[in-house]
């Protein structure tokens, strides 16, 4: 299969085709193979620099990107909110100019403001990967969730995945929708009405998405469930009567997940509040793919870094050719038609 990669950035997958998403997931398959080697390292991004700019606290996602970049032999530079001038009130514009001056092939950005990666992408020459922006998007999480579900369930066409919890504030929920729906899955949102965007709650939903406030009905016969993290501040903000009531009403318990199809998986983007949105027995039970999500996250991020820098020639990684053939060289000058064949 010949697929041409034409994306300059990974900001959100809301305008991606099924073929593009599948191409990333297929590329991630090869990356998982690299990660299974005794020495988890391939050379295709040697001499390339990946800057991780995290303006919001994150350990998991940052480490995942760092491992991904290092597994492809890229140099990694970390800029975090603590320890950089962001804390001193440096503006995002100034930060973008500085990052541009520093160079770097890929800029991975995590930011508390929805849309911040778009702002930066307009102002730097590097490829930008959105590692989570406000309540907007977290496309690498959406893609790794799609990868994990596809690995477990096969073709996602017609599969029904439940996303339960604080959808209003969740960038993961939006990116899960934007990665799963193009693959043919249907998404059922569930959670308290105050934690759903008003338009979605009132029926104006993205295509392929529904809302079922009753989590028991939502889970009945579902093909999988993704629980979202519940921030405790939501109660103080008047959006919830109590965390206890939330756990009783929407928390994933063993009897609840048992109503899904046999073997239907349970996922969570982490970090979890065990006993709130998910019971420990479910989080660590037979249906849980939460650890797989972490491993797959590295592979999917490797795939994206590779595709953004090298333009995508899958054989360079997984094929018979020695990968050293491109080490340190220019990216292959493949023609970049718009769209994907």
């Amino acid at each position: 299969m010949k697929v041409t990669w034409s994306r300059r950035h990974v900001l959100e997958t809301d305008d991606w085709s099924r073929e593009e998403i599948e191409h990333v997931l297929d590329t991630a398959n090869g990356m998982l193979e690299v990660l299974s080697r005794p020495i988890r390292r391939a050379p295709p991004l040697r001499g390339r620099t990946v800057i991780l700019f995290f303006a919001e606290a994150s350990t998991r996602t940052r480490v995942s990107f760092e491992l991904a970049a290092k597994a492809l032999s890229a140099d990694v530079v970390n800029i975090t909110a603590t320890g950089s001038s962001v804390e001193k009130g440096e503006s995002l514009l100034d930060t973008a100019r500085t990052l541009e001056a520093l160079g770097g092939d890929v800029l991975v950005i995590r930011h508390g403001s929805s849309g911040a990666p778009y702002f930066v992408a307009q102002r730097v020459g590097a490829a930008v990967i959105n590692a989570g922006d406000g309540a907007h998007a977290h496309p690498t999480q959406g893609l790794l969730d799609a990868y994990t579900l596809r690995a477990k369930l096969g073709d996602l066409a017609g599969k029904r995945i439940v996303v339960v919890g604080d959808v209003l504030h969740s960038r993961v929920a939006r990116s899960d929708i934007n990665a799963l729906v193009p693959l043919g899955a249907r998404v059922t949102l569930s959670g308290p009405p105050t934690l759903l965007p008003a338009a979605w709650r009132c029926g104006d939903l993205p295509s392929g998405v529904g809302y079922e406030p009753d989590v028991d009905r939502a889970l009945d016969g579902a093909d999988g469930v993704i629980a979202l993290r519940l921030q405790r501040e939501r109660q103080e903000a008047g959006l919830l009567p109590s965390i206890r009531e939330y756990a009783r009403t929407w928390g994933l318990t063993e009897p609840r997940v048992a109503t899904m199809r046999p073997g239907a998986p349970v996922m969570h983007p982490g970090p979890m509040n065990e006993g709130v949105e998910i019971d420990a027995a479910v989080a660590h039970g037979a249906r849980s793919l939460i650890e797989e999500q972490v491993t797959n996250g590295v592979a999917v991020r490797m795939a994206l870094l590779y595709l953004l820098i090298a333009g995508g020639e899958p054989r360079l990684i997984v094929g018979a050719e020695p990968p050293t053939s491109i080490a340190g060289g220019e990216p292959p000058a493949t023609p970049l038609p718009t769209g994907v064949v």
Partner: peptide
Amino acid sequence: EGRVSADLGLPG
């Protein structure tokens, strides 16, 4: 606050 703010994750 509407469909667009819901999709963009911006407070409405």
